[in-house]
Amino acid sequence: MTAPAPPDPRAALGNALAAQMSMLLGVKTAATWVLNPPPLGDGISTFALFSFANGTSAAAVLIDLQLSCLLGAALLGSPVVPPAHVATMGAHPREVEEALGECCNVFAALLNAAQPQRLKLTGLVLGPADLDLEELGACRIEYAVSITGFGAGRLVWFGRAAAAAAIMAARQEVESRALGPEGLGDTFSEVIGRMIGHPPAFKAGSRLTLAPSLRAAIPVFRARQSGGIYAVGVCELSLAAMFGAAPTMIPKATLQEQTRAGKLSGTLLDGAHEIFNVMAAPFAHRKVYLESLCWLPGELPADVRAMLPNNTTLPAWEVTVGDYGSGKFAMAGLR
C-alpha cells in the first residue's frame, strides 16, 4: 500500500477553513489556496486582527469587501449589503460586524490550535487592501472562497501564527487520513495480522446499532496522560470469539459453543484480550492503552456507558477473519 503524499500546509489550512466555515454558515463553503494571486487592487477590505494576551500582534485575516458582505448575509440570513454601501459608510452595519466577529472566532480557533500561547480577535477594521502588515512577518496565504448559493471572494491570512496554523492543519489532515475509516481499518488489519498470521479484512461502510439485546465485547481504550477515555470499541460477540480463536487456531465448534453461551472464557478470552490489546498500537503516540474489556449485555462503567447510548447507530467495519467468518466492529469516541 502506497502512503498518499502529505498535503501542502496551505492547502490543508484551506480545507480546515472550508470545513469550519461550512459548519458555521450551514452551507457548503470551499476555500481553495491560490499560489500566485493577482493584486487585490486599491479598494478597501475587512481585516480581522489577532493578538496574544500581552497585546503583541499575531496574525491578521483580510476578507475582501465582497466576501465580507456575503459572509454577513449568509450568517444572518438577510439580503447582501452592497459592498459599495459599506465603502461609502466606512463600516459594516453593526449586525453584520457582529456576525463577521463570529466567523473570525472560527479563524481564532484555527490559529489557537497551533499556538502554545492563546491569541484572540482584537478587532475588525476596514482598511486599504495594501495595509502594511509587515510586523506580522512575511507569511501570506491567499484563498479563493466560494459560499454555495451566495458567491465568492478572496480571503488572505497573514503572519507567522497563520503559518503555524497551516502546518498544524496539515498534520491533522495526515492524522485524520490515517485514522479515518479506511486508513484505520487497514492499520487494524495489519496489526492483528501480525498476531494471527494472516490479516483480517476490515471493510468500512457498515453500521452497528447499540440495541439493548446486542451481545458484544467492549474494549475500553484510555489515554495515559489525560486519564480520559480515548475510544471505546464495540465488537460483536461472534467477532470477538473469532479474534480469540484465530491466534491459536481454536476449532470453529468451540467458538460457536461459547458464542451461543454468550460468554468467552479460557484461551478464547485470552486471545480476544490480546487482539484488543494490540488495537491500541495505532494510537501509541498518544499513549493510549487497553484499560479494560467489558461486555454487553451487562453493566458498564458510567463513563463508558455515556459513550454508548442505547439504540445509537455507529459506523462500523465488517471484519472477516479467515475461514472463521465475519462480524461487525465499531469505535466510539475516536478523536
Binding site: P247, T248, D270, G271, E274
Partner: peptide
C-alpha cells in the same frame, strides 16, 4: 501472563 501471547511469540 497470556498463554495465547506466549504461543504467538513462539510461533
Amino acid at each position: 501472563d497470556s498463554k495465547v501471547m506466549r504461543s504467538i511469540i513462539i510461533r
